[in-house]
Design a protein around this nucleic acid. Structure first.
Lengths: 337, 337
DNA sequence: CGGTAACATGTTACGCGTAACAGGATGCCG
DNA sequence: CGGCATCCTGTTACGCGTAACATGTTACCG
């Protein structure tokens, strides 16, 4: 029993075979460049020692980590899980490791996460926010890594933005609600981020265009089913005659719906409800939830494809890629007249 | 305009001040060891150049990355998002970066992810599975990093397991269902993993102890609300007289519940429904869902605390830490008699 | 004022995989 | 059999932050 064995290196493998580590390194990268006799011996030594590749020295000398930093505000939010899935479906087969970090909707935490990711020499960054501190912009520029912003088709992007038009999406759903006879509506928001502000703008514009008074309620807490129920009680306190609520995501909408059920308020007859994003549950519940279906996985996929292109040295072709959204009327709004 | 500027190094900062990089390094780590006059100049140079710390050389020479690999089967599954949150609430303030990876319930993918994480020299690993390939065990041993398994209090652990007793939890809920008069029940499972097998065992034991015939339905697909609805239709095909379903997670349970609503089946009068994990939605929906509340965040927190202790050189004190679960009867089972 | 402690800064070496180049061995051709 | 290509393996150097040690400087004391 020797003292605490350290992890074997290429040198250990080479020593065991009686060759230099360079040959072992070559065998790992392109076995056909090594003579058949050595191939066998090297493989044997690798197996016996249990050699585990070590990327760190190579990252140090080549400054290429084959890792990409992916920043999302929250993991609890289903939306980002799907963006991540789309991203990895492209990045992983291409040999890139995703380094995931989240920052709880705080700009200073985002800054800290980006610094950490850059300290590990990530080759590129995907951000889920479109507003950043000057320091963040500066760090990214200095580090010289490509960056793509997802979730909104905001312009101008740092370099490239891939998303949908949050304002237009909220505007469209508001119009649908009005068309279905929900005119005295409230917008529910949690954790105010840039995207939520854009959605509220779309809601307010549409309301005003129809001569209606917009009204929005927000909370600093994370959105959740419970939170949606709470907001509904608050809204009814302030506006007992409200006939519709439009929520910044499906969770709040479903929470509000359950609260209506508890209070015996018929949906959609008395109150119409609409959510945002179009998760699985929206189409499964009774009544099916009206929602804006957003291209979550596709944003992730396209972000990966475009970032990989940049890493191959290609220039940004299209600084803003705007993907379509789709309205799903469900059964939680009054039927078409 | 110089050609593509490379990211500034400590040497660049030192050159600008006219000192050696060692002094700059010291300033960053413990400014008070540097004379006041230099402190100011160094800070100015750091700001002007926008120096971004680079951990890679230090990882190479110290073999300490201050990063911990956290492996989960899925990010779409809410359960793991909460384990991650608990983990980071401890690891992040302690200065450890989490490197998150997921493997879609596939053992070979888990193996590949572990290899990648070890290639980046993570200091420790958290695994969400309790069954592993020999190669995984070997890699972990050879790498010499501490490892903790979460999600089940299975014994023996590789080194340490932190979780709850899945079998006992399922057994307890089954007993509750039987006590409430749901005796002709079906167990719904998706994506068969080790934990699900343990739960099924608990369900089957409890059923047999009461002279009842266990029956389980499973699918290879990921669990979702839609999938729960599908399983309910299948179950009714095979057992039109069933009076209760127990699902391996809340999503399936809720999906099954919605399907009951669509088919006009009264819950819990005709069919009682129970889920697993106790997410927010279980307590928010109407009727509130019967569920097993599991210590998700606490598993994450404890895993982080124990791993950090190991990294400080402390030995494993308790190879298996079993945390309590709690039954929540909700309103989706028949009332107590 | 010599001696020594305390402080500030510099020097050296290290970690380990790989690119780039060098060199030796073999084979083939005219 | 000389010349050259081909194939295989080895040698060297590099990336950059920091631990450990060395050196220089100032201050203070008896």
């Amino acid at each position: 029993m020797t003292a605490k064995r350290r992890r074997p290196t290429l040198q250990d493998v080479a020593d065991r075979v009686g060759i230099t580590k360079m040959t072992v390194s070559r065998y790992l990268k392109s076995p056909e460049q090594v003579s058949a006799a050595l191939q066998e011996k090297i493989q044997k030594a690798l197996d016996e020692l249990g050699y585990i590749p070590n990327k760190v020295p190579d990252i140090l000398s080549s400054s290429k980590s084959h890792a990409i930093g992916l920043l999302v505000p929250s993991l609890t939010n289903q939306v980002f899980a799907e963006v991540i899935r789309g991203f990895e479906s492209v990045a992983e087969p291409a040999g890139y490791q995703t380094m995931l970090a989240h920052y709880g909707y705080s700009q200073s935490a985002e800054e800290a996460r980006i610094a950490t990711l850059l300290a590990y020499n990530v080759d590129g960054l995907i951000l889920s926010e479109s507003i950043h501190t000057d320091r963040v912009r500066r760090m990214i520029r200095t580090a010289g890594v490509p960056v793509i912003e997802v979730m909104d088709s905001v312009s101008p992007a740092i370099e490239q933005a891939i998303g949908f038009n949050n304002t237009a999406a909220a505007h469209a759903m508001t119009e649908l609600m009005i068309a279905r006879g929900h005119r005295n509506t409230v917008y529910f928001a949690a954790r105010m981020d840039a995207r939520t502000r854009l959605k509220i703008r779309g809601y307010e514009q549409a309301m005003r265009e129809h001569g209606l008074e917009p009204f929005s309620l927000q909370t600093e807490e994370a959105s959740s089913f419970t939170r949606g129920a709470l907001l509904l009680r608050q809204a009814l306190d302030k506006r007992p005659d409200l006939d519709g609520i439009f929520c910044t995501n499906d969770d709040l909408a479903i929470g509000a719906f359950y609260e209506c059920q508890r209070q015996g308020i018929p949906v959609p007859q008395q109150i119409g409800i609409a959510g945002f994003h179009g998760h699985d549950i929206a189409g499964a519940m009774v009544p099916r939830l009206a929602t804006v279906v957003t291209p979550r996985e596709e944003m992730g996929r396209l972000a990966a494809e475009n970032l990989l292109a940049r890493l191959r040295g290609e220039p940004v072709r299209q600084p803003v890629i705007e993907l379509p959204f789709r309205l799903e009327a469900g059964e939680s709004l009054r039927p078409e007249i």
